[in-house]
């Protein structure tokens, strides 16, 4: 065990931690994006609210989500440790600003990352904390996140009605009304919070800028993490580079940025 901790405290070992935590966060982005695409379903938020309940209450997912929070913290702390060390490695700066050619994003991972951390804090405060606070602080005086009741026809599978329930004590429920031949779902309406948040143009702009930062962060970060792990293959490293560019720096940030933009223009 002491051998492996010694390994992780070397310069390359610390970079391995950055690389592995970074890749785990990349993997999370794929899950997060594909899940949240349910926001685009035209079903008054049934699928999304159902999914939100599942993601916050299914124990294995909960375990992974706490692992994810630790990963975010670990990635940030190690970035800070490495940056401090890197600054110490050059105590006197050059009089002439360095002009060595390198990609802009690769030189500004710290700034991009810090902005993304700020984004994550605000983003989690707005959705994650708002979603959980009614359960954590039962007696808080502020407004509670409303619940919505959905009725789906069992035969056709189509949504019959969706109505917001008056303020009160509710719990997630899914049951069948045999007489009406309808499936009834009562779920916390997180989509309402999404609509409310993305009705603010400043908030939408903040999200879009954050996704721009994410794009540049991953443009360097994804391929760099494989380089750190020692991936050096004539055929496969270029494939990794292309995945980094197209999936992580283009498709995923655009997918996320589409949510606030589409909601701002259609659901306001």
């Amino acid at each position: 065990m002491s051998g492996s901790t010694q390994t992780l405290s070397t310069s390359i070992g610390k970079k391995l931690i950055m690389s592995l935590t970074g890749l785990f966060l990349c993997l999370f982005l794929i899950v997060h994006l594909s899940g949240n695409f349910q926001l685009f379903k035209d079903d008054s938020g049934l699928a999304f609210n159902d999914y939100s309940h599942f993601m916050t209450h299914f124990p294995p997912i909960k375990v992974v989500s706490y692992l994810l929070y630790l990963t975010i913290i670990g990635h940030s702390i190690y970035a800070l440790i490495l940056t401090i060390k890197n600054r110490k490695a050059r105590p006197v700066n050059y009089a002439m600003a360095p002009k060595s050619p390198s990609i802009w994003s690769s030189r500004n991972m710290g700034i991009l990352g810090s902005f993304l951390l700020l984004f994550i804090v605000i983003h989690m405060g707005n959705f994650w904390f708002s979603y959980h606070k009614d359960e954590w602080f039962k007696n808080h005086s502020g407004p509670k996140m409303p619940f919505k009741e959905y009725r789906t026809d069992l035969k056709t599978g189509k949504l019959v009605s969706a109505k917001q329930l008056p303020q009160g004590e509710y719990e997630y429920a899914k049951y069948v009304d045999v007489n009406a031949q309808q499936e009834i779902t009562i779920a916390k309406d997180l989509q309402a919070q999404v609509i409310f948040s993305f009705s603010s143009p400043l908030y939408v702009l903040f999200y879009v800028i954050a996704m721009g930062s994410l794009s540049f962060h991953l443009l360097h970060g994804f391929q760099s993490s494989w380089q750190t792990m020692g991936m050096n293959h004539r055929k496969y490293k270029p494939i990794v580079n292309q995945i980094g560019i197209w999936l992580f720096a283009v498709i995923i940030p655009i997918g996320f940025a589409a949510m606030p933009i589409v909601y701002y223009f259609t659901k306001r």
Partner: peptide
């Protein structure tokens, strides 16, 4: 590491 060099961030400025 002992000599106090910084850590690699794969910017590739060295290669250039």
């Amino acid at each position: 590491d002992e000599e106090g060099f910084g850590n690699c961030t794969n910017t590739a400025a060295c290669e250039a």
